[in-house]
Simulated assay, not measured.
Amino acid sequence: MPIPDPTAEPRVLAGAVSPLTADLVHGPPRRAEVLAAGRVGVYLRLDGRVLPVLGPDAVALPSALRVTEPLDVAALAPGDAVVVGEGRVRLPAATVVARRTWRPARVPTGHLGLDDGRVAALLAAATVEAPGWLVAGTAGAVSDAEPEVAVRALVGRGPGLTPSGDDALAGALLLHRAAGVPSDALAAAVRGRLTATTAVSAALLEGAADGWATPDVVALVCAVARADAAGVTTHLPAVLAVGHTSGRDLVTGLAATLAVLAPTGRIAA
């Protein structure tokens, strides 16, 4: 068995950077803190923002630096430091070079279609096991003209990198945008609580407030807003497969929001 050369240079992997984080990757070299590392990649924090560096098996997060080959991040642990800048992310086992840019998915601003009940039924069936506090809390956050109290009870609630309350709120924010319903108060309340959750989840919530999400989520949200039952049936399984409960929780946010929004696109009284 050959003995590894300790002086060998790390291998170079080609990556595609999101325009949402290209300024971080192409900026001057600086220290980035490891937030989490796992099978699909690593999450880094620098300049107060989160940069996911993700391999081919990862969900296409809108702010990610995507790599076409598997990433070896076994040597990294939360709190470790790596160097990011000049178009590169220098990891212990590899250097990722941003050779191109990819375009993340974004929910367009539209209007809410008239649902004949089929879309609502599909969402309800998919989220039947969601906890009651999540459904009621999201409905309260969406329907209340002053949603701060409801949002405070949701942000950061639940386990994992993206707690359940955050995922549901992301769904609510995205559907508001797709439905063409202003959500300034909800978005402001969420942004005011970002320090109460994980840095990774805070970054995803910030993106959702501006309409950014994974392609599967964007497709599902648009189908819900159009009252397109066939489209919901097509895209729902891929979203539900995300994470342990993340996909279900986001769909719970869609279901609770749809139940509050009227067909006219205005908040129900």
Rank of each mutant, 00 (worst) to 15 (best):
P78T: 07
L61Y: 15
V82G: 00
V73R: 04
D80C: 03
Y43N: 15
A105P: 13
R100S: 04
L71M: 11
R45D: 02
V83D: 06
L65N: 09
V83G: 00
V97A: 09
V34D: 00
L51E: 06
T95W: 08
A93P: 07
V89E: 01
G38N: 12
V84H: 07
L91N: 04
V34H: 02
G87D: 08
A77P: 07
P56T: 06
G41Y: 14
A37Q: 06
R45H: 08
E69C: 00
L112E: 08
A37C: 06
D57A: 09
P108D: 02
V96A: 04
R106M: 03
D47A: 12
R45A: 14
T68D: 15
L91E: 03
P52F: 06
V96Q: 08
V50D: 05
A105S: 15
R45P: 09
V83Y: 03
P92G: 01
G48A: 10
V96G: 04
V96R: 02
T68N: 08
G41H: 10
R45Y: 05
L91R: 01
H111G: 12
R88T: 15
Y43L: 12
G79M: 09
E69L: 10
H111P: 02
R90K: 05
L65V: 12
W102R: 02
L71A: 03
P108F: 05
T101F: 07
G87W: 13
V97T: 14
G55Q: 02
D57T: 05
P70K: 03
R66E: 02
G87A: 11
A105M: 10
V42K: 01
E86I: 01
R49V: 05
A93Y: 09
R39M: 07
